[in-house]
Amino acid sequence: MAPLISQPSLWPALALCALPAVIAGCLHMAVVRLDLCPWLARPLDGGRCWRGARIFGDNKTWRGLVAMILFSILGCYALAGLMALAPGLAPYNVLDFSTHGAPFYGLLYGLGYSLFELPNSFLKRRRDIRPGQAGALPHILLDQADSVLGCLLLLYPFSRMDFAFVMTGVVAFTALHLAVNYLLYLCKLRAVPL
Rank of each mutant, 00 (worst) to 15 (best):
M1P: 13
I5Y: 02
I5M: 00
Q7T: 15
P8D: 01
P8T: 05
P8A: 01
L10Y: 14
P12T: 02
L14R: 03
A15I: 14
A24N: 08
G25R: 02
H28V: 08
A30T: 12
R33T: 15
L34Y: 10
D35Q: 14
W39R: 13
A41R: 15
R42L: 14
L44K: 08
D45A: 04
G46P: 12
G47K: 08
R48C: 11
C49L: 04
G52R: 03
G52M: 04
A53K: 13
I55Q: 02
D58E: 15
N59D: 12
K60Q: 10
T61Q: 06
T61K: 06
R63V: 13
V66F: 14
A67M: 12
M68I: 09
L70S: 11
F71P: 01
L74H: 01
A78F: 11
A78P: 03
A78L: 13
A78C: 15
L79S: 09
M83Q: 10
A84H: 10
A84R: 14
L85H: 08
P87D: 00
A90W: 01
N93S: 10
V94C: 07
S98C: 04
H100A: 09
G101K: 08
A102R: 09
P103L: 03
L108W: 00
Y109H: 12
G112W: 02
L115R: 04
L118R: 01
P119F: 11
N120Q: 04
F122A: 01
L123V: 14
R126I: 01
R127C: 12
D128W: 11
D128K: 15
R130Y: 06
R130Q: 14
R130M: 09
G132I: 11
P138H: 04
L142I: 14
D143F: 05
Q144H: 14
A145I: 08
D146K: 00
D146E: 10
V148R: 02
L149V: 15
L149R: 04
G150P: 03
L153T: 05
Y156T: 08
P157A: 00
P157F: 00
P157R: 02
F158N: 09
F158A: 09
S159D: 07
R160C: 09
M161Y: 02
M161P: 07
M161H: 05
A164T: 15
F165S: 03
F165A: 02
M167I: 15
G169W: 02
G169P: 02
V170F: 13
V171K: 00
V171I: 15
A172C: 14
L178F: 15
L178T: 12
Y182P: 06
L183F: 12
L184G: 01
L186G: 06
L189R: 03
L189S: 07
A191V: 11
V192A: 11
P193I: 13
P193A: 11
